[in-house]
Design a binder for these strands. Structure first.
Length: 484
RNA sequence: GGCAUGUUGGAGAAGCGGCUUAACUCACCAGCCUUUCACGCUGGCAUUCACGGGUUCGAAUCCCGUACAUGUCACCA
């Protein structure tokens, strides 16, 4: 297949959004699949809103997801610089060229004038667009404006009567009338290029073969094509991928919960789960299996299979996927992820001892099968910590009222006392022994112990819980719940 | 308001004119397994593809209209 030389070009105006991450992912997938290049460029021409922190966050989020770039702001490359504010003289050169060729012109209109014009057009039901009145200003008029202290912008003259055709890999051919575009600003009054201009210059100079980005840019594409035309450059291939919607079918935003990659990391999601999930939003592998490794996704991904319609972000499915990957993980890895969480929740001190690691290891063995995210362990911690427990409900109380309870608990205490070291395997054996000795089976053995130790009717396997608690807590809890 | 895009079950989706009495996955429901819960397994879950018209022997699939949703129309990207 042809090589995809693609780019992800975020604006550093906030943490990496989940939608941005998906755009980055699709670009990455195609680059890797075709043996091409994945480039990360920073579009920071909005001086007001761009920040270094956001740029750092974007870098870290991409790294966390495993979307490694071949060329980027951070690691360089032969088509740099990769930060737009460092490319200003390049844009100036092309803006000057357009000016000299009469394809662009200075516009001295004030924002108020433009605003009034736009309002009037909207009123009439027309598509608002600049009238072009500054295109043929005389030298005297220009001088007068300059004397007034007006700072001009540069507008691209978009020829009338043209068709601007976007050949889109996911949407097919989409045609726009150039009459509906208008002469738009390519360089702001402070000399900084606008997005629609800088993007075109960069994509051309960086030899981008395919522009793959979110659907919200589709309506901007004719403007960019107009710039390509004015500069006499060929257009790249385009692919506009659908938006990610929240559960209410509105564009994903704060009120839908976590929107940034960083938040998912903090909530205890695994990068491979997010990677897998994001790939499934708007793309389907076709077969029965949806749990796929990075390599399998790269292998099977294609733009032809990308859906046109927007996708709703289903948190339940992400959780299911994450749970799957947690069950696949090694205990060591889970322990490493759980420790920072337990520290932040106050279960562990800053200083982590060998004994702490042991303790967390036992906990993760107990919980690996139960949790969907690392942070889910918070819901279970009361099982492992503290002497005080509350009996969940009436049903649980009834369990403890059974006449066989003292027999079971005594047998448990006796056997545990005889155990040199408490581990899951040996504790499991004890249960078998108790069952044999007392002639009691299944629930009659496990439920009294479970309720006496945790106050609850269900939870992780008891043979995992008991070693976590250790002799001291077991004794104290039994004392409180069954007074034994 | 103009322009653009989209509309298959609660969600992601397959489907590209007859093989569809619409795959598969999540969720949900039932059963099995299991010391409980979960995991896992088995089965159930759209007579119908936003709606209306047309083309065709035949349409979820092609065409037109309507509705709804979203995007865009910035000296934001």
């Amino acid at each position: 297949m042809e090589k995809y030389r693609v780019r992800f070009a975020p604006s550093p105006t906030g943490p990496l959004h989940i939608g941005g991450a998906r755009s980055a992912l699709f670009n990455y997938l195609l680059a890797r699949k075709s043996g091409g290049e994945f480039i990360v460029r920073i579009e920071d021409t909005d001086l007001e809103r761009s920040s270094k922190e956001s740029e750092v966050n974007i870098r870290e989020s991409l790294a966390w997801l495993g979307l490694d770039a071949d060329e980027s702001v951070w690691d360089g490359g032969e088509f740099g610089p990769y930060r737009q504010t460092e490319r200003l003289e390049i844009y100036k050169k092309y803006a000057d060229q357009l000016l000299a060729e009469g394809k662009a012109y200075y516009c001295y209109c004030s924002e108020e004038e433009i605003e009034a014009e736009r309002a009037a057009q909207m009123e009439k039901g027309d598509m608002p667009m600049y009238s072009g009145k500054c295109m043929h200003l005389s030298e005297e008029q220009k001088a007068a404006y300059i004397a007034e202290g007006r700072k001009p912008v540069i507008r691209l003259h978009v020829p009338h009567g043209d068709k601007l055709v976007v050949d889109d890999a996911v949407r097919g051919v989409v045609t726009f009338e150039s009459d509906g575009v208008g002469d738009f600003v390519i360089v702001k009054s402070d000399g900084i290029p606008t997005y629609n201009f800088a993007v075109v210059v960069d994509d051309h100079l960086m030899q981008i073969s395919h522009v793959i980005r979110a659907e919200e840019h589709l309506s901007n594409t004719p403007r960019q094509i107009a710039v390509h035309n004015a500069l006499g450059w060929d257009v790249p291939k385009y692919a506009h991928i659908s938006l990610i919607l929240g559960e209410d079918r509105k564009k994903m935003s704060k009120r839908h919960g976590a929107t940034s990659v960083t938040q998912y990391e903090k909530l205890g999601y695994l990068p491979e789960a997010v990677f897998n999930f994001l790939a499934l939003l708007g793309w389907s592998p076709g077969g029965e299996e949806e749990i796929l490794t990075k390599e399998e996704i790269i292998e099977r991904f294609s733009l032809e299979a990308v859906s046109k319609s927007p996708a709703v972000f289903d948190m339940e499915k992400l959780k299911w996927l994450n749970g799957h990957y947690i069950r696949q993980s090694s205990i060591e890895r889970l322990v490493g992820l759980a420790i920072p969480y337990l520290q932040s929740e106050g279960y562990l001190k800053e200083e982590v001892t060998e004994a702490d690691v042991q303790w967390v290891t036992l906990i993760m063995q107990a919980l690996q099968e139960k949790i969907h995210t690392i942070n889910d362990i918070g819901e279970f911690m009361h099982l492992f910590v503290g002497e005080d427990i509350t009996i969940e409900d009436e049903e649980a109380k009834e369990v403890l009222a059974d006449p066989d309870v003292p027999t079971v608990i005594n047998a448990l205490k006796e056997h545990l006392a005889a155990l040199p070291e408490w581990n899951a395997e040996d504790v499991k054996k004890i249960f078998k022994t108790i069952s044999k000795e007392t002639g009691l089976k299944g629930k009659k053995v496990f439920m009294p112990i479970r309720v006496a130790l945790t106050g609850q009717m269900h939870g992780p396997d008891l043979h995992f819980i008991i070693p976590v608690l250790g002799p001291e807590l077991v004794a104290k809890r039994l004392q409180k719940t069954v007074n034994m």
